[in-house]
Design a protein around this nucleic acid. Structure first.
Lengths: 149, 149
DNA sequence: ATACAAAATCTTATGTTATAACGCCGCATA
DNA sequence: TATGCGGCGTTATAACATAAGATTTTGTAT
Protein backbone atom coordinates (compact mmCIF):
# COMPACT_ATOMS: atom_id res chain seq x y z
CA UNK A 1 0.00 0.00 0.00
CA UNK A 2 1.56 3.24 -1.13
CA UNK A 3 0.68 6.85 -0.74
CA UNK A 4 -0.25 8.76 -3.83
CA UNK A 5 1.80 11.81 -4.69
CA UNK A 6 -0.21 13.15 -7.61
CA UNK A 7 -1.94 16.44 -7.41
CA UNK A 8 -5.67 16.01 -7.66
CA UNK A 9 -7.49 19.12 -8.75
CA UNK A 10 -11.16 19.35 -8.04
CA UNK A 11 -13.35 20.71 -10.76
CA UNK A 12 -15.93 23.33 -9.99
CA UNK A 13 -19.62 22.44 -10.25
CA UNK A 14 -19.78 24.68 -13.31
CA UNK A 15 -16.98 22.81 -15.04
CA UNK A 16 -18.59 19.49 -14.18
CA UNK A 17 -21.87 20.68 -15.60
CA UNK A 18 -20.26 21.70 -18.86
CA UNK A 19 -18.57 18.32 -19.20
CA UNK A 20 -21.80 16.53 -18.36
CA UNK A 21 -23.69 18.42 -21.04
CA UNK A 22 -21.06 17.59 -23.62
CA UNK A 23 -21.08 13.90 -22.78
CA UNK A 24 -24.82 13.85 -22.93
CA UNK A 25 -24.79 15.56 -26.34
CA UNK A 26 -22.23 13.13 -27.70
CA UNK A 27 -24.45 10.24 -26.75
CA UNK A 28 -27.53 11.87 -28.22
CA UNK A 29 -29.39 11.86 -24.93
CA UNK A 30 -31.43 14.73 -23.59
CA UNK A 31 -30.06 16.77 -20.72
CA UNK A 32 -33.42 18.00 -19.48
CA UNK A 33 -34.01 20.71 -16.89
CA UNK A 34 -34.73 18.09 -14.26
CA UNK A 35 -31.60 16.10 -15.02
CA UNK A 36 -29.53 19.25 -15.09
CA UNK A 37 -30.92 20.35 -11.77
CA UNK A 38 -30.30 16.99 -10.13
CA UNK A 39 -26.80 16.86 -11.54
CA UNK A 40 -26.06 20.36 -10.30
CA UNK A 41 -27.27 19.55 -6.80
CA UNK A 42 -25.03 16.48 -6.73
CA UNK A 43 -22.07 18.41 -8.12
CA UNK A 44 -22.47 21.23 -5.62
CA UNK A 45 -22.64 18.95 -2.62
CA UNK A 46 -19.37 18.69 -0.76
CA UNK A 47 -20.02 15.14 0.27
CA UNK A 48 -22.06 12.27 -1.12
CA UNK A 49 -25.71 13.28 -1.19
CA UNK A 50 -28.72 11.06 -0.60
CA UNK A 51 -31.68 10.60 -2.88
CA UNK A 52 -34.21 11.89 -0.38
CA UNK A 53 -32.08 14.95 0.35
CA UNK A 54 -32.08 15.65 -3.37
CA UNK A 55 -35.85 15.32 -3.30
CA UNK A 56 -36.03 17.94 -0.56
CA UNK A 57 -33.73 20.26 -2.43
CA UNK A 58 -35.75 20.02 -5.62
CA UNK A 59 -38.68 21.60 -3.81
CA UNK A 60 -40.34 23.96 -4.33
CA UNK A 61 -38.98 24.98 -7.75
CA UNK A 62 -39.77 21.55 -9.13
CA UNK A 63 -43.09 21.17 -7.37
CA UNK A 64 -43.33 18.22 -5.04
CA UNK A 65 -41.30 15.56 -6.74
CA UNK A 66 -41.73 11.96 -5.68
CA UNK A 67 -38.99 9.32 -5.27
CA UNK A 68 -39.19 7.90 -8.82
CA UNK A 69 -38.45 11.34 -10.21
CA UNK A 70 -35.09 11.60 -8.55
CA UNK A 71 -34.22 7.93 -8.95
CA UNK A 72 -34.89 8.12 -12.66
CA UNK A 73 -32.62 11.13 -12.97
CA UNK A 74 -29.90 9.41 -10.94
CA UNK A 75 -30.19 6.26 -13.05
CA UNK A 76 -29.85 8.30 -16.18
CA UNK A 77 -26.84 10.20 -14.89
CA UNK A 78 -25.07 7.14 -13.57
CA UNK A 79 -25.78 5.29 -16.81
CA UNK A 80 -23.76 7.98 -18.55
CA UNK A 81 -21.07 7.82 -15.89
CA UNK A 82 -21.82 11.36 -14.75
CA UNK A 83 -22.52 10.37 -11.18
CA UNK A 84 -21.43 7.45 -9.04
CA UNK A 85 -23.32 5.72 -6.31
CA UNK A 86 -21.42 5.18 -3.06
CA UNK A 87 -22.75 1.80 -2.06
CA UNK A 88 -22.01 1.73 1.63
CA UNK A 89 -23.56 5.18 2.12
CA UNK A 90 -26.56 4.91 -0.18
CA UNK A 91 -25.44 8.22 -1.60
CA UNK A 92 -24.32 9.82 -4.83
CA UNK A 93 -21.44 11.99 -6.05
CA UNK A 94 -20.54 13.68 -9.32
CA UNK A 95 -17.88 11.81 -11.25
CA UNK A 96 -14.51 13.53 -11.44
CA UNK A 97 -13.60 13.14 -15.08
CA UNK A 98 -9.96 14.11 -14.48
CA UNK A 99 -9.30 10.45 -14.13
CA UNK A 100 -10.35 9.34 -17.57
CA UNK A 101 -11.87 5.93 -18.17
CA UNK A 102 -11.38 4.18 -14.89
CA UNK A 103 -12.66 2.00 -12.13
CA UNK A 104 -13.70 4.46 -9.48
CA UNK A 105 -12.14 4.08 -6.07
CA UNK A 106 -13.31 6.20 -3.16
CA UNK A 107 -11.68 7.36 0.05
CA UNK A 108 -14.31 8.63 2.43
CA UNK A 109 -13.53 10.41 5.68
CA UNK A 110 -15.90 9.30 8.41
CA UNK A 111 -15.44 12.54 10.28
CA UNK A 112 -15.84 15.28 7.69
CA UNK A 113 -17.61 13.08 5.13
CA UNK A 114 -15.31 14.36 2.44
CA UNK A 115 -14.72 12.02 -0.48
CA UNK A 116 -11.69 11.62 -2.71
CA UNK A 117 -12.05 9.84 -6.01
CA UNK A 118 -9.16 7.89 -7.48
CA UNK A 119 -8.57 5.46 -10.28
CA UNK A 120 -8.14 1.81 -9.38
CA UNK A 121 -7.17 0.76 -12.87
CA UNK A 122 -4.43 -1.72 -12.37
CA UNK A 123 -4.23 -3.13 -8.96
CA UNK A 124 -6.63 -6.02 -8.76
CA UNK A 125 -4.25 -8.91 -8.43
CA UNK A 126 -6.08 -12.02 -7.41
CA UNK A 127 -9.03 -12.56 -9.72
CA UNK A 128 -10.53 -16.05 -9.70
CA UNK A 129 -9.58 -17.87 -12.88
CA UNK A 130 -11.98 -17.14 -15.69
CA UNK A 131 -13.91 -14.46 -13.84
CA UNK A 132 -14.84 -11.52 -16.04
CA UNK A 133 -15.26 -8.32 -14.06
CA UNK A 134 -18.04 -6.04 -15.29
CA UNK A 135 -18.20 -3.56 -12.48
CA UNK A 136 -16.31 -2.92 -9.27
CA UNK A 137 -17.18 -1.26 -6.00
CA UNK A 138 -14.11 -0.01 -4.15
CA UNK A 139 -14.68 2.19 -1.13
CA UNK A 140 -12.30 2.94 1.71
CA UNK A 141 -13.53 4.45 4.96
CA UNK A 142 -11.30 6.14 7.49
CA UNK A 143 -9.91 9.45 8.64
CA UNK A 144 -8.46 12.05 6.29
CA UNK A 145 -5.31 14.03 6.88
CA UNK A 146 -7.13 17.16 8.04
CA UNK A 147 -9.33 15.36 10.52
CA UNK A 148 -6.44 13.36 11.97
CA UNK A 149 -4.77 16.57 13.10
CA UNK B 1 -4.60 -7.35 -13.04
CA UNK B 2 -3.56 -10.94 -12.69
CA UNK B 3 -5.38 -14.18 -12.33
CA UNK B 4 -5.01 -15.98 -9.06
CA UNK B 5 -3.59 -19.46 -9.18
CA UNK B 6 -4.10 -20.49 -5.58
CA UNK B 7 -6.41 -23.26 -4.70
CA UNK B 8 -9.26 -21.97 -2.60
CA UNK B 9 -10.94 -24.63 -0.57
CA UNK B 10 -14.42 -23.94 0.69
CA UNK B 11 -15.18 -24.95 4.20
CA UNK B 12 -18.35 -26.79 5.00
CA UNK B 13 -21.05 -25.08 7.06
CA UNK B 14 -20.16 -27.44 9.90
CA UNK B 15 -16.51 -26.44 9.82
CA UNK B 16 -17.46 -22.78 9.72
CA UNK B 17 -19.74 -23.27 12.68
CA UNK B 18 -17.01 -24.89 14.71
CA UNK B 19 -14.61 -22.06 13.94
CA UNK B 20 -17.26 -19.50 14.77
CA UNK B 21 -17.90 -21.08 18.15
CA UNK B 22 -14.20 -21.10 18.93
CA UNK B 23 -13.76 -17.45 18.03
CA UNK B 24 -16.76 -16.54 20.09
CA UNK B 25 -15.40 -18.46 23.07
CA UNK B 26 -11.99 -16.84 22.77
CA UNK B 27 -13.58 -13.43 22.94
CA UNK B 28 -15.75 -14.40 25.87
CA UNK B 29 -18.95 -13.69 24.01
CA UNK B 30 -22.03 -15.88 24.07
CA UNK B 31 -22.89 -17.97 21.05
CA UNK B 32 -26.59 -18.23 21.80
CA UNK B 33 -29.09 -20.49 20.04
CA UNK B 34 -30.37 -17.58 18.03
CA UNK B 35 -26.92 -16.47 16.95
CA UNK B 36 -25.94 -20.02 16.13
CA UNK B 37 -29.04 -20.51 14.07
CA UNK B 38 -28.57 -17.28 12.15
CA UNK B 39 -24.94 -18.09 11.53
CA UNK B 40 -25.81 -21.56 10.30
CA UNK B 41 -28.37 -20.22 7.88
CA UNK B 42 -25.83 -17.77 6.48
CA UNK B 43 -23.15 -20.44 6.27
CA UNK B 44 -25.45 -22.88 4.50
CA UNK B 45 -26.54 -20.40 1.89
CA UNK B 46 -24.74 -20.79 -1.40
CA UNK B 47 -24.95 -17.11 -2.16
CA UNK B 48 -25.22 -13.96 -0.09
CA UNK B 49 -28.43 -14.07 1.89
CA UNK B 50 -30.66 -11.15 2.81
CA UNK B 51 -31.84 -10.17 6.26
CA UNK B 52 -35.52 -10.65 5.49
CA UNK B 53 -34.87 -14.04 3.94
CA UNK B 54 -33.15 -15.01 7.17
CA UNK B 55 -36.22 -13.81 9.03
CA UNK B 56 -38.40 -16.07 6.91
CA UNK B 57 -36.11 -19.02 7.47
CA UNK B 58 -36.11 -18.56 11.23
CA UNK B 59 -39.82 -19.25 11.26
CA UNK B 60 -41.50 -21.20 12.70
CA UNK B 61 -38.89 -22.75 15.02
CA UNK B 62 -38.00 -19.35 16.38
CA UNK B 63 -41.53 -18.04 16.57
CA UNK B 64 -42.24 -14.96 14.51
CA UNK B 65 -39.04 -12.99 14.77
CA UNK B 66 -39.07 -9.33 13.85
CA UNK B 67 -36.37 -7.43 11.95
CA UNK B 68 -34.39 -6.29 15.01
CA UNK B 69 -33.92 -9.91 16.03
CA UNK B 70 -32.03 -10.81 12.91
CA UNK B 71 -30.21 -7.50 12.60
CA UNK B 72 -28.91 -7.82 16.15
CA UNK B 73 -27.61 -11.29 15.43
CA UNK B 74 -25.99 -10.11 12.20
CA UNK B 75 -24.39 -7.15 13.98
CA UNK B 76 -23.01 -9.46 16.61
CA UNK B 77 -21.64 -11.90 14.06
CA UNK B 78 -20.12 -9.23 11.85
CA UNK B 79 -18.61 -7.54 14.90
CA UNK B 80 -16.70 -10.76 15.49
CA UNK B 81 -15.80 -11.02 11.81
CA UNK B 82 -17.86 -14.18 11.42
CA UNK B 83 -20.00 -12.78 8.64
CA UNK B 84 -19.47 -10.03 6.10
CA UNK B 85 -22.01 -7.70 4.63
CA UNK B 86 -21.99 -7.37 0.84
CA UNK B 87 -22.80 -3.69 0.46
CA UNK B 88 -24.06 -3.56 -3.09
CA UNK B 89 -26.42 -6.47 -2.47
CA UNK B 90 -27.64 -5.68 1.04
CA UNK B 91 -26.77 -9.26 1.84
CA UNK B 92 -24.57 -11.34 4.11
CA UNK B 93 -22.09 -14.20 3.81
CA UNK B 94 -20.13 -16.30 6.26
CA UNK B 95 -16.48 -15.28 6.44
CA UNK B 96 -14.03 -17.75 4.98
CA UNK B 97 -11.32 -17.85 7.61
CA UNK B 98 -8.87 -19.61 5.32
CA UNK B 99 -7.62 -16.17 4.45
CA UNK B 100 -6.49 -15.08 7.88
CA UNK B 101 -6.63 -11.47 8.97
CA UNK B 102 -7.45 -9.65 5.79
CA UNK B 103 -9.37 -7.03 3.92
CA UNK B 104 -12.18 -8.98 2.33
CA UNK B 105 -12.54 -8.75 -1.42
CA UNK B 106 -15.49 -10.33 -3.17
CA UNK B 107 -16.08 -11.61 -6.68
CA UNK B 108 -19.77 -12.03 -7.30
CA UNK B 109 -21.25 -13.70 -10.36
CA UNK B 110 -24.31 -11.85 -11.56
CA UNK B 111 -25.69 -14.96 -13.21
CA UNK B 112 -25.38 -17.69 -10.58
CA UNK B 113 -24.96 -15.32 -7.62
CA UNK B 114 -22.01 -17.32 -6.43
CA UNK B 115 -19.47 -15.42 -4.37
CA UNK B 116 -15.73 -15.94 -4.04
CA UNK B 117 -13.91 -14.35 -1.16
CA UNK B 118 -10.30 -13.28 -1.49
CA UNK B 119 -7.81 -11.25 0.47
CA UNK B 120 -7.03 -7.76 -0.77
CA UNK B 121 -4.20 -7.20 1.65
CA UNK B 122 -1.59 -5.47 -0.37
CA UNK B 123 -2.84 -3.91 -3.48
CA UNK B 124 -4.19 -0.53 -2.57
CA UNK B 125 -1.71 1.70 -4.28
CA UNK B 126 -2.94 5.25 -4.45
CA UNK B 127 -4.08 6.33 -1.00
CA UNK B 128 -4.47 10.08 -0.50
CA UNK B 129 -1.62 11.41 1.61
CA UNK B 130 -2.33 11.10 5.30
CA UNK B 131 -5.54 9.10 4.87
CA UNK B 132 -5.90 6.34 7.44
CA UNK B 133 -8.03 3.48 6.17
CA UNK B 134 -10.24 1.89 8.81
CA UNK B 135 -12.44 -0.30 6.67
CA UNK B 136 -12.67 -1.17 2.99
CA UNK B 137 -15.45 -2.35 0.74
CA UNK B 138 -14.16 -4.17 -2.32
CA UNK B 139 -16.71 -5.97 -4.49
CA UNK B 140 -16.37 -7.07 -8.09
CA UNK B 141 -19.41 -8.01 -10.14
CA UNK B 142 -19.27 -9.99 -13.34
CA UNK B 143 -19.52 -13.45 -14.82
CA UNK B 144 -17.77 -16.47 -13.37
CA UNK B 145 -15.97 -19.12 -15.34
CA UNK B 146 -18.82 -21.62 -15.21
CA UNK B 147 -21.47 -19.17 -16.33
CA UNK B 148 -19.33 -17.84 -19.18
CA UNK B 149 -19.34 -21.30 -20.76
C1' DA C 1 -29.99 -20.90 47.10
C1' DT C 2 -30.67 -15.88 46.39
C1' DA C 3 -30.12 -11.41 44.84
C1' DC C 4 -28.22 -8.53 41.68
C1' DA C 5 -26.39 -6.57 37.36
C1' DA C 6 -25.49 -7.14 32.78
C1' DA C 7 -26.49 -9.19 28.48
C1' DA C 8 -29.74 -10.81 25.31
C1' DT C 9 -34.15 -10.85 23.51
C1' DC C 10 -38.89 -9.41 22.24
C1' DT C 11 -42.20 -6.00 20.76
C1' DT C 12 -44.06 -1.91 18.80
C1' DA C 13 -43.45 1.56 16.03
C1' DT C 14 -41.23 4.08 12.73
C1' DG C 15 -37.57 5.64 9.65
C1' DT C 16 -35.08 5.13 5.29
C1' DT C 17 -34.19 3.62 0.63
C1' DA C 18 -36.04 2.05 -3.76
C1' DT C 19 -39.27 0.33 -7.37
C1' DA C 20 -43.67 -1.25 -9.82
C1' DA C 21 -47.34 0.11 -12.48
C1' DC C 22 -50.00 3.16 -14.99
C1' DG C 23 -51.16 7.33 -17.35
C1' DC C 24 -50.27 11.75 -19.55
C1' DC C 25 -47.92 15.03 -22.33
C1' DG C 26 -44.90 16.88 -25.79
C1' DC C 27 -42.03 16.27 -29.52
C1' DA C 28 -39.95 14.11 -33.71
C1' DT C 29 -40.98 11.93 -37.84
C1' DA C 30 -43.38 9.94 -41.32
C1' DT D 1 -52.44 14.43 -38.38
C1' DA D 2 -51.40 10.02 -36.76
C1' DT D 3 -48.27 7.50 -34.14
C1' DG D 4 -44.53 6.20 -31.32
C1' DC D 5 -41.35 7.08 -27.85
C1' DG D 6 -38.96 9.43 -24.22
C1' DG D 7 -39.63 11.86 -20.08
C1' DC D 8 -42.12 12.74 -16.18
C1' DG D 9 -46.08 12.72 -12.66
C1' DT D 10 -48.66 10.01 -9.33
C1' DT D 11 -50.09 6.35 -6.37
C1' DA D 12 -48.94 2.66 -3.99
C1' DT D 13 -46.00 -0.55 -2.06
C1' DA D 14 -41.73 -3.20 -1.53
C1' DA D 15 -37.39 -3.72 0.67
C1' DC D 16 -34.06 -2.58 4.10
C1' DA D 17 -33.00 -0.92 8.81
C1' DT D 18 -33.21 1.12 13.58
C1' DA D 19 -35.07 3.59 17.94
C1' DA D 20 -36.87 2.88 22.34
C1' DG D 21 -38.63 0.49 26.09
C1' DA D 22 -40.33 -3.86 28.41
C1' DT D 23 -39.00 -8.42 29.64
C1' DT D 24 -36.32 -12.58 30.15
C1' DT D 25 -32.07 -15.07 30.72
C1' DT D 26 -27.59 -15.63 32.45
C1' DG D 27 -23.31 -15.19 35.10
C1' DT D 28 -21.49 -13.73 39.49
C1' DA D 29 -21.13 -12.60 44.22
C1' DT D 30 -22.97 -13.35 48.45
Amino acid sequence: MTTCKHEHEHKTPEQLLTIAQQICDQRGRRFTKLREHVFTLVAKSNSPIKAYDLLDQLRPEFGSPKPPTVYRALDFLSGLGLVHRVEALNAYIACDHSLGGHIAEFFICEKCENLEERSANDHIDCVPEGFEIRRSVIEHYGICKNCAA
